[in-house]
Structure formats: structure tokens, C-alpha cells
Amino acid sequence: MADLLTNAWTPPGPAMLFCPADRPDRYKKALERADVVILDLEDAVGPENRPAAREALIANPIDPGRVVVRINPATTGDYRRDLAAIAETDYRVVMQAKAETPESVIETALQTIALVETPLGATRVNEIAAVSNCIGLMWGAEDLVAGLGGKSSRFGADEKKPGTYRDVALWVRSATRLAAAAYGKFAVDSVHLDIEDVEGLVDEIRDAVALGYTATACIHPSQVAHIQAGYQPTDDEIVWAKKVVAGSEDHLGGVFSIDGQMVDGPVLRQAQAVLARAGA
């Protein structure tokens, strides 16, 4: 298992686009638009179409370095069938839907992004993140709320803060991000289902970037450009970050100030993160 993480996969860019695995005609188009394509064998495919989806997965290969395959929950018969199909491909990164136990991640024997989207998974997120072949975490709101017996993860138009997440969803989002950081794994923010709500999407991207998320998943090609732009630092942010890094070198890592702002170790690491996102 340790060999899997010798060269652990990380998203080559921030926009991760879901694509139904039973629509091979969309595979290459999705890959042209997004940084990563998530070929979905779970929710995007009806149970009756999953055998055909697995056949399509095998018969229509695309760049394995930019593909994640979402597999069905470990409690279903489709889980084993999905893994058997993946074994006939060059894909070696999976997303475990409704991850609830460390064992379900271990049993994939593949580099795995654990999707935390059930009450049980949320309460075990730290145990799941600690698994050696768990390379990243993503969280999901809709299955989470369904598992609570609720009706909506977001506030409605007639409520305060319309369109934003309710507190329980935000708690799981925060817990997932913290667990990923605690165990040195990358974190992927959840999808924004309201495709027309560009303003809401952009706000969530800004927050994800501020909290150190590596990527944001999406369900529509029109969302990709907003994600890519949101994760790219502005020119002013890059200038500030370079000044901080250079100042730290001049002061031998000690505390100093730039433009009235005190700079210490945490601020230096934030500046380094900005430059890493910029590729500078």
C-alpha cells in the first residue's frame, strides 16, 4: 500500500468536472474543458445503465493522469464490479462515493479520494483521512442532508442568506478541510448545483481558495472557467507574496513588516501558498 503513495496523484489543476461514464461521447469534450474529469459510475448513471457505463469506461480510454473514476458505495454490489472494470483500464485514481469507513477506502487498493457525504462518513472523517491510500477528501451536501432526513442543504429564497449553505453542511465542509490538512491530504470543495448562480459559485470559490482547498468539483462545463480564474492569484496578490518571501529572506526568517503588516511564519506560509497557486 505504501507504494501507492510514493508518487501520490494530485489534481493538475483546480477544475474537476463530473462526466457520466455512460456517455463516452462526452469524455474527450470534458477533458478539453476541465483540468480533471471525474468519470462517474454512481449518481450520474442509472442502475440499469451501469453495466454499459463500465464497458464504455474500458473501451474509451482518455488521459489517466487527468481522470478520476467515481465508484459506487462499498455497501453495494456495484462497488466490486466498478473496481473490476477499472482493473482493465489504466485509471488508478478513484473517488469513493459515500465513504464511511477506513476499510472501504483500503479495499480499493487504489489511490482514493474519499467523498464524505453521509452522517456516518462525516463523524469518521478523521479516521478515513488517516488511511494510507486516501490521497484526498471531498465533501458533498445533498446526500448528507438526505441522510439527515432533511430537504435542502441551502437556505431558500424566502429565508435569510438565500442560496448559502445551512450550518450542518458548513460544519461538514469545515471538518473535511481540517481532516485533510491534519493528515496531509488535498481537499476538493463540493459542487455548486445552481448552474445559473454564477455569483454564488464565485463566492464559494473565493472562500475555498482562502481556506486552502486544492480544487473545486463542478457539474457543468460553463463553471470550469470561473473555477480556474478563481484559483489563479491576482497580480496584486502575486506581487504581495513575492515581497513577503523576499523580505523573509532578507530578515533571515525573523518577524518584519511590509506596508504596515507584520509578517511572521504563518503569513510567510500564506504567501508561499499564493505563489504555489500561481506557479511562480
Rank of each mutant, 00 (worst) to 15 (best):
T101F: 00
E100N: 09
K98T: 08
L137E: 08
S132R: 10
A129Y: 01
M95K: 12
Q96L: 15
G136T: 07
E142Y: 02
M138A: 14
M138N: 14
A122M: 03
I128P: 01
V116Y: 02
I128G: 02
V94K: 07
E103S: 09
A109L: 09
T108R: 07
N126D: 12
K98R: 15
T101W: 12
Q111F: 04
R124I: 04
A141W: 07
E127D: 10
A129W: 05
G140V: 15
L120G: 06
L110G: 04
T101I: 00
E127H: 01
E103Q: 10
T123H: 14
K98A: 11
E127Q: 10
G121S: 06
E103V: 01
G121E: 05
A130Q: 00
D90R: 15
E117Q: 10
V116F: 09
E103W: 06
R92G: 11
T123G: 05
N133Q: 01
R92N: 14
L110Q: 07
V93P: 11
V125I: 00
E117P: 06
I135Q: 12
P119T: 07
E103T: 02
P102W: 03
V105H: 02
R124G: 00
R124L: 04
Q111S: 08
Q96R: 01
M95R: 12
T112Q: 06
M138F: 10
C134N: 11
D90L: 15
W139V: 04
A141S: 15
L137M: 06
A141E: 15
E127M: 05
S132E: 15
S132M: 05
L120F: 11
V105F: 09
A114S: 10
N133G: 05
V93H: 15
K98V: 10
T118M: 02
A130V: 05
E127G: 01
E107P: 04
A141C: 11
T112Y: 08
M138L: 13
E127F: 04
A130R: 02
Q111W: 05
T101D: 09
P102R: 02
V93N: 13
A114Y: 10
T108Q: 00
T108H: 05
E117Y: 01
A130P: 00
P119A: 03
N133Y: 03
V105Y: 06
N126Q: 15
R92S: 14
M138G: 10
A99M: 05
G140E: 15
Y91N: 09
L137C: 09
T108D: 00
Q96K: 08
V131L: 07
Q96T: 07
T118H: 01
V93A: 14
E100V: 08
Q96V: 15
T118D: 06
R92I: 08
Y91F: 14
L120R: 15
C134V: 13
W139Q: 06
R92F: 09
L110T: 04
T118R: 02
A114T: 14
T108V: 06
V105L: 09
P102Q: 00
E103D: 07
N126C: 10
A129E: 03
G140F: 14
V116D: 00
